[in-house]
Measured scan of single mutants.
Amino acid sequence: TIDEIIKALEQAVKDNKPIQVGNYTVTSADEAEKLAKKLKKEY
């Protein structure tokens, strides 16, 4: 679900690790936030 994706992003940001979500690779908190907002609009 979208919530699980967002939790995974938040965890990756805390661990400061890049995370791959679908076609996106998120490497920073800023990118994670942008991706989360984008995904919320889509779903």
Rank of each mutant, 00 (worst) to 15 (best):
T1K: 07
I2A: 03
D3C: 14
D3F: 14
D3H: 12
D3G: 10
D3Q: 13
D3M: 15
D3N: 07
E4C: 13
E4I: 04
E4L: 10
E4G: 05
E4M: 11
I5C: 10
I5E: 01
I5M: 08
I5Y: 04
I6N: 00
I6Y: 04
I6L: 14
K7E: 09
K7V: 07
K7Q: 10
K7C: 05
A8V: 09
A8R: 07
A8P: 01
A8L: 13
L9A: 03
L9Y: 01
L9T: 01
E10S: 05
E10M: 13
E10C: 12
Q11K: 09
Q11P: 01
Q11D: 08
Q11H: 04
Q11V: 05
Q11L: 08
A12N: 03
A12H: 06
A12C: 10
V13E: 01
V13C: 09
V13D: 02
V13K: 04
K14N: 07
D15I: 06
D15T: 07
D15F: 12
D15S: 10
D15N: 10
K17G: 04
K17C: 03
P18C: 05
P18H: 06
P18S: 09
P18N: 04
I19D: 02
I19F: 08
Q20I: 11
Q20S: 11
Q20C: 15
Q20W: 05
Q20G: 03
V21L: 12
V21Y: 06
V21G: 02
V21P: 00
V21R: 00
V21E: 01
V21S: 01
V21K: 00
V21I: 15
G22F: 09
G22N: 09
G22R: 00
G22M: 07
N23K: 12
N23H: 12
N23G: 15
N23D: 14
Y24V: 11
Y24N: 04
Y24P: 01
Y24K: 04
T25W: 15
T25P: 06
T25L: 14
T25H: 14
V26C: 14
V26A: 10
T27K: 11
T27L: 15
T27R: 06
T27C: 15
T27P: 05
T27V: 13
S28W: 09
S28R: 00
A29C: 10
A29Q: 08
A29K: 07
A29W: 07
A29E: 03
A29P: 06
D30C: 10
E31Q: 07
E31L: 02
E31I: 04
E31Y: 02
E31S: 02
E31H: 03
A32E: 00
A32I: 06
A32G: 03
A32W: 03
A32H: 00
E33H: 08
E33C: 08
E33Y: 09
E33W: 06
E33G: 07
E33P: 00
K34Y: 10
K34N: 11
K34L: 12
K34F: 11
K34C: 15
L35C: 14
L35H: 01
L35N: 01
A36P: 02
A36Y: 15
A36G: 03
A36L: 15
K37C: 14
K37I: 14
K38Y: 14
K38E: 15
K38W: 14
K38F: 14
L39S: 00
L39C: 09
L39W: 01
K40T: 07
K40D: 04
K41V: 08
K41W: 12
K41H: 14
K41P: 03
E42L: 13
E42M: 11
E42I: 14
E42S: 05
Y43E: 09
Y43R: 07
Y43T: 08
Y43V: 10
Y43C: 13
